[in-house]
């Protein structure tokens, strides 16, 4: 699971190692990646929102 999260996170920044990608595409299920992607995207929204609320004071 941690591996999936790591893959998705690096995807967010647009950086990915060929090896890892190959492993993801051969072993992982697309469904897991999509779900983790959506969850992490929402998490990112919440984090940015929290920073904005904090900054606005």
């Amino acid at each position: 699971m941690w591996e999936v999260v790591k893959s998705v996170l690096s995807a967010f920044f647009g950086v990915q190692r060929e090896q890892r990608r190959r492993r993801d595409f051969e072993q992982g299920k697309p469904g897991t990646f999509i779900v983790v992607g959506i969850v992490l995207a929402m998490l990112m929204v919440i984090v940015v929102m929290a920073i904005a609320i904090m900054a606005a004071g």
Binding site: A11, F12, F13, G14, R21
Partner: peptide, 19 residues
């Protein structure tokens, strides 16, 4: 250079474009 990165960057841009 960085084919996988390119694909991921495209997907990333697509997601961010909604925000």
């Amino acid at each position: 250079f960085g084919y996988a990165s390119m694909v991921y960057a495209t997907a990333s841009i697509a997601i961010l474009s909604f925000l």
